[in-house]
Design a protein around this nucleic acid. Structure first.
Lengths: 378, 378
DNA sequence: CTGAAAGCGCTTACAG
DNA sequence: CTGAAAGCGCTTACAG
């Protein structure tokens, strides 16, 4: 859906469809005088819509903004006119009137891959709402406070909190005390105080387990993640529940503690594969650790997946960098960021117009991505 | 420098300094009536500045926009008033008048690390100019055309071209034919047809060579990059020139061809280290390949840097992920993106006001980052 | 070189 | 439920 608004590149060909309207508008406003500088700005305005619908610009504005006090009849007339004229609200003009909406992003140390996927999504959504995205980095507890202050000082109307900050008690507490609208992204246990967008880590891990069980594996090892991160426990619980559900035992030596890092995955893999009998599959709770499992397996001259099935979680770039590529659970980070921005804007708008706003906890769909690192137990 | 404009979070404390001005303004405009909704918007306007400077708002506008036809005396008065009132232009209002500036980013497959650093920089600069960043991805030749069309259809006024697209003849040709302002980022051989922001790859590689030579290395191996990428030749040439400059020979077996990927680095390293006599240092033309060199060295039970010095180029996240961490040349991607956006906006503004615009090729400073992977030749 | 006026496209009180 | 008017803060012709 292309935007048709003022201020486009001058080199653009004239939009013949909209041009008639634009000329009409100028004629009406300027008594026939045509301003060349704006001849190409073919977008319809609220006035055009109002004229076509036979109502006032105010009513059009009310419809656009979802204001309820418009008669059904008029609302329909306006909607029809909007469709016919291909009207799109000019976000710049709106911003000039009500102030630019600023979405703050408070980030600490997510992976570069997470950050870029997140930024792409957040940016897309901000662009459509005419909101600005402002960034602030912090790396330790002390700088959290400063970063939040800077964000607010720079005019942030709401704040996005991606991992690992979304699991930081201190950061969440500060935001709650300030009372600024915030949305946590990809936390497994969202605080009731703020909105959140996440996948169901438990169901995701369960889906992966069903895949492994369906392949015929009965002796499966598991590498846990950093206990400080909220998805850790849920992914582990799903592993345990799936095994029990299949009537399978989970001996203690089949579970190793990791920290979500490659290095910790190395140690955990050596532990799991150093046993007298080896599992036929290892489920690492994230991709970095799964990649480490493959490295250790290769070091022991085990073929993946022939001698050992390996799978991860998250579907980060490392999943397709290593060989063989990892079977994993895809988290739709870009979509999650978009949703988070949408939720945040909703909240800010509600707050501005004095309405109460109920925090929302939104679940996004994950996907099982089957690649080369898993195969049937022989 | 905090922004003080309308539309900030309502929960913010009132800016006492600016508030007096704001009240004054409202009083003047509304005959004493104070609009609560905007009481907190403490920013000074062109009118405030004009009043303080004893000129018209037009003159203030002229000064802000760098218009030359303002007397030196008035310009100074205005500048002083701007300083005293802490005036900052309201980008939303400007956008409402002249149209929102849209900066398009056409990207194909940069690394996630590059993309996130780039986005952070581009976003920062766009935010300060009130410009919007719009993204479009393409992965093959055919989709390039489509992606560019979509960008233009979405109202992009100019286009940012990061690697590897900045080295794609077809993409550059399309952009040139369309005549849309564009800026290439991190290409080593910028086209005279468009502006570019880059580091000096030749000088950067030379700096790394001086570091190796200063450490006492005389037998140095080199891994070349993908011949399709423009920095490849320059980095290699610097290696050759530095060796010759130091009076050292470069036997053919000391140079291996890589493709900038980890996997190609693996092969190249095996080649270089499989010789009867080994070099004491290996300079890989990027970090991914340098990381592979370390892996191969470890596989051969060589200690890095004790038995082999290794260094890379670019300072991407892998440089600090591997162990030992890599000595490398840091490319300031975030700053480069900021500069690129600034250049693009300059170009678009010039074009809009009908001025000619000379393409600019901007050089950014690189940095030699010495970490653990290099040490003196024994 | 300088300014008064009109306008960008939208929304906010206000009055009906 | 609806509209006329004023205004967001800035810039663009136009006239001097």
């Amino acid at each position: 859906m292309g935007r048709r608004q003022a201020g486009r590149a001058l080199a653009r060909p004239v939009d013949a469809g909209g041009d008639g309207q634009a000329a009409l508008r100028w004629a009406r406003r300027d008594g026939g005088q045509v301003k060349t500088a704006h001849r190409e700005a073919g977008g319809a305005t609220v006035w055009d819509v109002a004229r076509k619908a036979g109502v006032s610009a105010m009513t059009v504005s009310r419809v656009i903004n979802g204001n309820t006090s418009v008669s059904v009849k008029n609302r329909e007339k306006v909607m029809r006119a909007i469709g016919e004229l291909n009207y799109e609200v000019n976000v710049a003009a709106r911003a000039a009137r009500i102030g630019t909406l600023r979405v703050g992003l408070l980030y600490s140390n997510p992976s570069e891959a997470f950050l870029s996927a997140f930024l792409v999504g957040a940016l897309t959504e901000c662009g459509q709402s005419g909101a600005h995205l402002i960034l602030e980095h912090c790396d330790n507890l002390k700088s959290q406070r400063k970063a939040i202050d800077r964000l607010i000082d720079d005019g942030a109307d709401g704040i996005l909190v991606p991992p690992p900050l979304c699991d930081s008690k201190s950061a969440l507490k500060m935001l709650a005390e300030l009372g600024i609208p915030s949305v946590a992204v990809a936390t497994a246990r969202p605080s009731p105080q703020m909105s959140a967008v996440r996948i169901d880590d438990y169901e995701g891990a369960l889906t992966m387990m069903r895949h492994l069980l369906a392949l015929g594996h009965t002796d499966i090892g598991f590498i846990k993640g950093d206990p400080e991160h909220t998805p850790t426990q849920l992914r582990y619980q799903a592993f345990i529940d799936a095994m029990r559900g299949a009537g399978l035992d989970v001996p203690a030596e089949r579970v190793a503690q990791g920290m979500f890092t490659y290095r910790s995955g190395l140690l955990a893999a050596r532990e799991l594969l150093g046993q007298a009998t080896r599992p036929t599959a290892i489920f690492a709770s994230n991709d970095d650790m799964a990649a480490a499992v493959i490295a250790v397996a290769h070091g022991m001259h085990l073929q993946v997946p022939d001698d050992l099935t390996v799978c991860g979680f998250d579907d980060t770039p490392v999943a397709t960098t290593v060989w063989p590529e990892l079977t994993t659970i895809h988290q739709p980070i870009t979509d999650m960021a978009r949703s988070a921005v949408a939720l945040l804007i909703e909240h800010v708008r509600a707050q501005r117009s004095g309405h109460a706003y109920d925090r929302r906890h939104q679940l996004m769909p994950y996907t099982l991505v089957v690649r080369e690192s898993t195969s049937g137990a022989e």
